[in-house]
Design a protein around this nucleic acid. Structure first.
Length: 519
RNA sequence: GCCGCGUUGGUCAAUCGGUUAAGACGCCUCCCUUUCACGGAGGAAUGAGGGGUUCGACUCCCCUACGCGGUACCA
């Protein structure tokens, strides 16, 4: 590509289900690179395999990208100058180029049936060669336009015999390219098999489609998972054979995200097994009805999800770990992407979310937390309307408890006592400390509170301590009991702050109620 | 089997020939707080093995081992 060319990158998922971590990170790196260089980010759907295409998956991908804030400039949904953006809608052009390759002798027709291929593989299979390949050593023994006489080929094609088009890999060439992450990578063409380019149903395989699409969509940089590295020589040759070598994008093969225990690529199963999500958002498989949990629904902020993924395989060389999307765009550099795969660590993911919740302004958290509160019956309303909690009050609560929430879904458990009386008390904690003397203190405290005109945390604390002294009890001994009376358990923010927040009636009421329960 | 890519603490990782080999997560101890957290101080824990090159290798080269990926009319 010429240096004057505008940077264009693409994310090309196949709509076969939920978007897992590796997928989102690939989008992220594509997006960051595009934005970093003022370029375009293109979403292209690879729906060439009808057997794996899943209804609704395309829209799901769109929603995930939206949630993460990684919206494409061009996509099947919003269009763009290089559409269509679904491979199924570009079908005719793939065939055209496959035929062109046959004409120039770089590809050939193959008539072998699936059964014949199966037979070839099983009969040639040995301990030394468990996976016989359809390659230069074997192709003349198979039924194709290289091994068959021309008349036979014509007859088969005219007779409507099904066929695929395979690339004809040369025998003894060394071919290579410069990967942006790995440096020079080379392959011997003779080691690579004659990959199918065009399937019998007329659809292209990934190999043909990426090349044709990337060329026509003027893609300048192609980033994909490391699992694609072995097929790079096929793509390299295709760019060359099609005469587009000058326009070939620069490639980077991203390291894999590995399962936390053992080795290997992280899969949906690992999440189920180890109890964490592997998809960005909840995904319900329409065929099986099976639900796979997502980070969003678990209570992740999109910012922390993106931040966490960016740090899996990349860092800017400093000690900074918390980045906004804008920070990432400003700092991202493909040269600093790791070569080795990274094991996913859910504890670290949780830490990122916790950090983000702590730093996030309470006002901003409101929109995300309010629906969760509403689901519990806490209806927010503008100040003044009866029976409802004001937005300001909810924001105050969020501010008070956010540092102890790891997930957005923790907010209710950490703050329900601001909205309703505790229904259960931690009697295990209360039991050993509850006695007649303490009971008398709390009865007095309740009466005292009811008489107060002003009621704030500082005043309450002063009164509380004075009263404790008057009763000959150390204030500290009583605080835990007071806490359980107000919140039900041994947790939550500053005690007197909670009481002040509740107001004197509710505070006194909860004391009375607890005294009755404690006995 | 063949081909390709990898390999710094349990995990994420810095280092681009000279450092006491950072930092973070997790774990442990202590402080703060008579709650849970937050915060603060400290601790244990790392260069797969073997050869080179070099005055000097975690860093460069080779071999081995190990891991992963690919080896489909799936992507």
């Amino acid at each position: 590509m010429s240096s004057a060319q505008k940077v264009r990158v693409r994310f090309a998922p196949s709509p076969t289900g939920g978007l897992h971590l590796g997928g989102v990170r690939t989008v992220l790196f594509n997006y960051l690179f595009a934005r970093r260089h003022g370029g375009d980010f293109v979403l292209r759907i690879e729906d060439t395999d009808q057997t794996r295409f899943v209804e609704g998956a395309e829209e799901y991908i769109q929603r995930c990208l939206e949630w993460c804030g990684l919206e494409p400039d061009e996509s099947p949904f919003k269009g763009g100058p290089y559409g269509p953006y679904r491979q199924s809608e570009r079908k005719p052009m793939y065939r055209e180029f496959a035929l062109l390759l046959v004409e120039s002798g770089k590809a050939y027709y193959a008539f072998d049936t699936p059964e014949e291929l199966e037979y070839m593989r099983s009969s040639l299979k040995t301990a030394e060669n468990p996976n016989p390949q359809y390659d230069h050593r074997l192709r003349m023994q198979m039924r194709n336009s290289l091994s068959l006489p021309q008349e036979e080929v014509d007859r088969l094609i005219q007779g409507g015999a099904p066929y695929v088009i395979r690339i004809r890999m040369p025998e003894g060439e060394t071919i290579g390219f410069r990967d942006m992450i790995r440096g020079e990578v080379t392959f011997q063409t003779g080691q690579v098999d004659d990959k199918v380019l065009l399937k019998a149903d007329g659809m292209p395989t990934y190999h043909l489609a990426v090349v044709v699409d990337d060329y026509h969509m003027k893609i300048t940089h192609a980033f994909r998972g490391e699992e694609w590295l072995p097929s790079a020589p096929v793509h390299l040759l295709l760019w060359k054979y099609l005469g587009w070598e000058e326009s070939m994008p620069q490639w980077a093969h991203l390291p894999l995200i590995l399962k936390p225990d053992g080795n290997g690529k992280l899969s949906k199963r690992d999440g189920d097994r180890l109890g964490f999500p592997v998809f960005a958002m909840d995904w319900k498989d329409p065929k099986t009805g099976e639900l796979t949990k997502g980070f969003k629904e678990l209570g992740f902020l999109p910012e922390s999800f993106v931040n966490m993924l960016a740090m899996l395989g990349w860092n800017d060389g400093t000690e900074q770990e918390i980045f906004t999307l804008d920070d990432l765009v400003a700092r991202f550099d493909m040269d600093r992407v790791h070569k080795g795969g990274a094991k996913f660590n859910f504890d670290k993911a949780k830490w990122f979310n916790h950090e983000w919740i702590k730093f996030y302004p309470a006002e901003g958290l409101y929109e995300l937390v309010e629906p969760l509160f509403a689901a519990k019956g806490v209806v927010s309303a503008s100040a003044g309307s009866r029976g409802a909690v004001t937005r300001e009050r909810i924001v105050d609560v969020i501010r008070l408890v956010k540092e102890r929430c790891t997930f957005l879904t923790d907010f209710w458990d950490q703050s329900y006592f601001f909205f309703e009386d505790p229904v259960e008390y931690d009697m295990v904690a209360v039991g050993p400390k509850w006695n007649e003397k303490n009971k008398a203190f709390f009865e007095a405290l309740s009466a005292d509170i009811k008489q107060l005109v002003d009621f704030d945390a500082a005043l309450l604390e002063t009164n509380f301590k004075a009263l404790a002294t008057a009763h000959g009890i150390k204030a500290g001994e009583l605080q835990m009991l007071f806490r359980v009376m107000l919140v039900g358990g041994k947790f939550g923010p500053s005690l007197f702050g909670i009481a002040a927040f509740l107001g004197k009636e509710k505070t006194a009421h909860r004391i009375d109620k607890a005294v009755a329960v404690f006995g």
